[in-house]
Design a binder for these strands. Structure first.
Lengths: 256, 256
DNA sequence: ACAAAAGTGTTAGAGGTACACCCATGT
DNA sequence: ACATGGGTGTACCTCTAACACTTTTGT
């Protein structure tokens, strides 16, 4: 294992841009909750959770690196993503995290420790995926990824919790302008679904009747059937009209 | 000159993060126009304009690098700035720009050419300054910076025009949330000034009477006197109440 | 007196908020 | 029948957009 890691590090030193990484906050929506994908790292007795991420090849565009990383974790290819922040303070490295893992064999290895103690600048992207289409996969050095509710993602390694928080803020700011909902929901969905999603993103309640009217008047969704699920009164199913606007408000109003 | 550049490059190779740079879009407002600071590079017969920028030292936070660069160009220290995008496609370098400068001695120098042909990832920041406080200064390798109207900043070197355009979009999106106006105007200003500023940022007209009412009702500015300027009817002078909200709308409404 | 820019008033209509109410289904 | 969640109606109020109007200055 350690040899495999060393080999990987050496290949990065040749191919990758030094001290630069990419991290992805991959959002999904399930059971009325906004969730993100995290990777579990278990070395020795300690475990920690990190965001999916990786390095950028010299010959690779940043966006291509993101697509590669998202595909690794989710199998999906053409999804919506957006660069939202860069984290790169002078002290930003995995050095602390590595020193905590006393029980790991890696701890003693100078070459590996040195690599992970380097300062890294991370360009961060948020990505939106349809939860129901995702089959989480193990990646090269990690166990299978897993979903974690955004509310519970407060104890990730290094600054990754901050990255999630920042991604969420960015998502809120983008909500009015970008087709966010249509990327987080399956092709067919009910209005209560959409309502819960928007409430989940904003972190507050929205009057249900008013929400319905606003969305319906905007003309961005069409009724496509009935919900066959087995609960109470069946809800109408809707789909976003593609080609039409799919953002939740239609222009820069900004209060003016 | 060329030796000085070579020396600089060698110092960067020791101290700076490789392939990473910082660029600043420094906005100011003057004569009812939104402007940005650019540097003129004159080598041989050709000239080109670039955004203020520089490298990040290994031991330096990104924000410290930005402050250093802004200070170099403007002399100002505590100003508002915000990271808004990263540009870093695989083909992003100054190679083309350098090859165009046939008449320059630098063109023939392999070491310098190689340095400037490297792929660079640029973390971009927008900064807001009070135009009236700025005294533009020449920097290490450049003539004095100069103000250029945003509308005319379409032909900067490499992708710098795109960076400006992107900064402006970001500024518009931030307008409702951040204290933008108070950083672009002098401490005392008239309502017509503020009106023109917002129109300048948004790139469209706003009904003057309605604008006045909206701003005044928001309670974020106070009357502090009369304008002593020598035109027509004197306008009232206002100042932002610090401590109070200074953004143009007060909360995330987002259409809901 | 007149032009130009600052500042005030007014009105119709759109949009937001809050809440009461009706409807369809499973148990 | 009744609880639950889906879906509709409506009244009140605020905000917006548009434009007419008044005021204060310099010439």
């Amino acid at each position: 294992m350690i040899d495999k890691i060393k080999k990987y590090i050496r290949s990065l030193e040749k191919e990758a841009i030094p001290q630069l990484s990419v991290n992805c906050v991959i959002f999904g929506f399930h059971e009325k909750t906004l969730k993100v994908i995290v990777n579990k790292i278990a070395l020795g007795q300690s475990t920690m959770f990190v965001l999916p991420g990786g390095y950028v090849k010299q010959t690779e565009n940043l966006t291509d690196a993101v697509q590669r990383i998202v595909k690794e974790s989710t199998g999906l290819e053409k999804i919506l993503f957006k660069q939202f922040a860069v984290f790169g303070d002078a002290s930003r490295s995995f050095e602390k995290e590595f020193k905590v893992l006393r029980t790991s064999k890696l701890d003693g290895d100078a070459e590996v420790l040195k690599w992970f103690s380097k300062r890294f600048i991370s360009v961060c992207y948020l990505a939106l995926v349809d939860f129901s289409k995702i089959e989480l996969k193990p990646t090269q050095f990690l166990d299978a990824a897993q979903w974690l509710s955004v509310e519970k993602a407060k104890t990730l390694a290094m600054d990754h919790s901050h990255i999630v928080e920042s991604a969420r803020e960015s998502l809120i700011k983008e909500l009015p302008y970008a087709p966010i909902a249509s990327n987080l929901l399956p092709p067919k969905f009910t209005l209560p679904d959409l309502h819960a999603l928007v409430e989940g993103i904003l972190g507050r309640t929205i009057d249900r009747p008013n929400f319905r009217r606003k969305i319906l008047k905007s003309d961005m969704i069409v009724k496509v059937g009935q919900d066959n699920s087995n609960k109470r009164r069946p809800a109408d199913l809707y789909a976003f009209r593609h080609g039409k606007k799919t953002s939740l408000i239609d222009e820069y109003k900004l209060g003016f």
